[in-house]
């Protein structure tokens, strides 16, 4: 069963043709990596699939829904780790988790993520006072904690140390083993 189905997807920004007739099918339980150099259109593709960007033409289905027509419904069912998007800076880490769980109307097992991504002692600080890597850990947590069937991750390992990078890869593998799907955009060949 295809969880992502893309046919003839096109998107231009002025003269720049970012997405040119993209064809794609991703099945449940797969980890799919999109590899390409900077400026290749990976983030545009991810934004188009997650309802963050309106495309010019083509057909897109994510979990059976059109992300342009039903962006909120799609975002409810997926997890998304955007590139370079920080958590709101004046909330503490725990308040940020509470904020996202309020929006998603779900509970979060904070302890699980503190343990898994080594966030002990970090959640009481305002996120603007955390390091880039710690902020990335919060963002990874929010993409997974509501246990979505499909998770989009854009450059997930950026700013993370080697140990945490391995744990994040394990997280992807666990999600796949549970029947979930990971859609990954990166320019890191070894990760793809």
């Amino acid at each position: 069963m295809a969880v992502i189905d893309v046919d003839g997807l096109e998107k231009s920004f002025g003269d720049v043709n970012a997405l040119n007739g993209v064809e794609l099918e991703v099945k449940k339980g797969e980890i799919v990596g999109v590899l390409g150099p900077n400026g290749a259109g990976k983030s545009s593709l991810m934004k188009a699939l997650t309802g963050q960007l309106e495309y010019d033409s083509g057909n897109v289905s994510v979990l059976g829904r059109d992300p342009v027509k039903e962006p909120v419904e799609v975002k409810k069912r997926i997890g998304a780790l955007p590139e370079r998007e920080d958590p709101p800076s004046f909330l503490t880490g725990s308040e940020y988790f509470e904020f996202v769980s309020d929006v998603r109307e779900t509970d979060i097992e904070s302890d699980r993520w503190i343990e898994k991504l080594n966030l002990k002692g970090k959640l009481d600080k305002m996120t603007q006072d955390l390091s880039k890597g710690e902020r990335q850990k919060l963002m990874i947590s929010q993409a997974f904690f509501h246990d979505p069937d499909l998770v989009f991750v854009d450059e997930p390992l950026v700013n993370l140390d080697q140990v945490i990078q391995e744990r994040v890869k394990e997280l992807f593998e666990e999600k796949r083993e549970d029947g979930g799907t990971i859609f990954l955009c990166t320019h890191v060949i070894s990760l793809a």
Binding site: K47, T50, Q52, P71, V72, E73, K75, K76, A80, L81, P82, E85, P88, S89, F90, V100, V103, R104, Q142, A143
Partner: peptide, 14 residues
């Protein structure tokens, strides 16, 4: 002043 639509683009809010 401290956020924009982009801030919430990855969570289910329109």
């Amino acid at each position: 002043k401290f956020d924009s639509l982009e801030t919430y683009s990855y969570i289910p809010l329109d």
